[in-house]
Amino acid sequence: MKAAIITFPGSNCDRDLAVAFEQAGAKVVRVWHKDTVLPAGTDVVGLPGGFSYGDYLRCGAIAARSPIGTAIAAHAKAGGYVLGICNGFQVLLEMGLLPGALLRNAGLKFLCKPVTLNVATTDSAFTSGYAQGAQIRIPIAHHDGNFTADAETVARLQGEGRVAFTYAENPNGSDGDIAGILSENRRVLGMMPHPERAMEAAHGSADGRALFAGLIGAFVPG
């Protein structure tokens, strides 16, 4: 399985994301934002956390329109997998590949701490490695993670089982306690918490491993 990890100016979790994919057994290719095509045979695109383009205009707004953006959108539309974490989630929303938007945290503070998440669906490659209703510990690190969408969109996401993770205790004001959502075909996941920062005991939690393992499992023949 080949994962393409995108680096934008200001990305700072790109290496961590690459290491997480490598540890899970993926072949990783690093891709620069000015590239216009993804490496041949890319199965998964990883959009890392950070502060792409200094968060100018809106978080993720400029990255979403960067040269590699068109190739990422085409990959998603063709049924390819995309994982966007933190700033990567903001980019996916700005690209319109997922619905809704992320506002400034309700408490206005930058939040950097481990949180407890509920696995809200196991019906996706990303969440298939968890037990339904499992609680996992994954860190958050964001200023703009307050997920918002109109009531109809939130109800649709919940009704279609497209909420991947919810916060056990809502830290940022997100509608429906939503921490991560899936696309209609369940192959694009955007989430604020950082599973790549919970890969081994030394990180304080290894609960992120199952996400990468599950995703890679989707590419094992048979």
Binding site: L57, A61, E94, P99, A101, T148
Partner: peptide, 9 residues
């Protein structure tokens, strides 16, 4: 429409 505003919010 394309960049300056996020018309979702």
């Amino acid at each position: 429409e394309k960049l300056l505003a996020n018309t979702v919010i």
